[in-house]
Simulated scan of single mutants.
Amino acid sequence: MIQEDFEQHVVKLQNALLGFAKSLTHNEDEAKDLLQETSLKALSNKAMYDDSGSIKSWLYTIMRNLFLNCRRHSSRQESLPTDFEIPDTDDMQGGIEGEDSFSTIDVQRIMDLLSIDNRILFGLYLQGYRYDEIADRLQMPLGTVKVRIYRIKQELRTYKKQLV
């Protein structure tokens, strides 16, 4: 395929690609950004396209891969939200200390000790996602999510006992 034909095909498919981007991101602005990144990547790597397949499928694959890579990258960068507050033991009313009470620093230390997969999983749990939502989002069985969160909580309790 000559260069002009390739570029024309990419331009003609912009509306279809935008629709696909919206279905992935569920956000108009993110969809437009994803479309732009996809078009840029396709045009800069047009030599990698072979005429044997559909250009539309090739572009959809690029878009999907960009979307997944972006989500993975942002998941790895997630940490505790700044507005998430866990009461410090000094702030507990009447001096009663709950079994699962930790300072934000304690939680951050234990999060740093977790594997990246467990950090993402427990981060979602701390943000208020339900077990089934976490399972869907991470494409894991529900039972696995429950067991891993239970084990992380046990690890937190063990860490808390070491601090006292």
Rank of each mutant, 00 (worst) to 15 (best):
T38N: 02
Q127S: 15
Q3E: 12
F84C: 07
V11G: 00
H26R: 09
A31V: 03
M48L: 11
G98S: 08
R148A: 08
K22Y: 12
S23N: 10
M48C: 04
I134Q: 02
F102E: 02
A42P: 01
E133V: 10
K46Q: 15
L142K: 14
I120S: 04
S115N: 00
E7D: 11
Y159D: 09
G98H: 12
R64D: 01
T158Q: 12
L40E: 07
P81V: 04
P81K: 09
S115Q: 04
L68Q: 09
R119Q: 13
Y159S: 11
Q154K: 14
L59K: 03
Q36F: 10
M92S: 10
Q14K: 13
T144P: 01
R64E: 11
G143A: 14
K160C: 07
F122K: 04
I96M: 13
D83R: 13
E7V: 08
A42D: 01
S44N: 03
E30G: 05
Y49W: 13
Q8Y: 06
Y125P: 00
G123D: 06
E155A: 11
L156V: 03
H9N: 15
I134C: 04
G95Q: 06
Q93C: 03
S115K: 02
Q139M: 10
G98K: 01
A16T: 10
R64S: 09
D106M: 15
N27K: 07
S54H: 09
Q127A: 10
G53H: 04
Q139G: 00
Y49I: 09
G53S: 06
Q162N: 08
K41R: 14
E133T: 06
S39H: 09
I120A: 11
D91L: 05
D5N: 14
Q108P: 03
Q154M: 09
Q108E: 11
R130N: 05
N69D: 15
S23Q: 15
F20M: 12
D88G: 04
R137Y: 12
L142H: 14
E37S: 04
Q93I: 15
I152H: 02
N69M: 03
H9G: 09
G98N: 05
T82S: 08
K41Q: 12
Q77L: 14
L43D: 04
A31Y: 01
Y125S: 11
R71D: 11
Q77E: 14
I120Q: 11
D50N: 11
P141A: 07
R151S: 05
R109I: 13
N45Q: 15
K22Q: 14
A16W: 00
I149T: 11
I116N: 01
I96Q: 03
G128E: 01
R76K: 15
L24K: 07
I55A: 04
D136G: 09
T82A: 07
K160E: 08
Q127R: 15
I152D: 01
Q3D: 09
S101A: 08
A21F: 02
L80Y: 08
L142S: 05
F67E: 08
K41T: 13
S75K: 11
Y129S: 05
P141C: 05
A47P: 00
A21I: 02
G53C: 01
S79E: 11
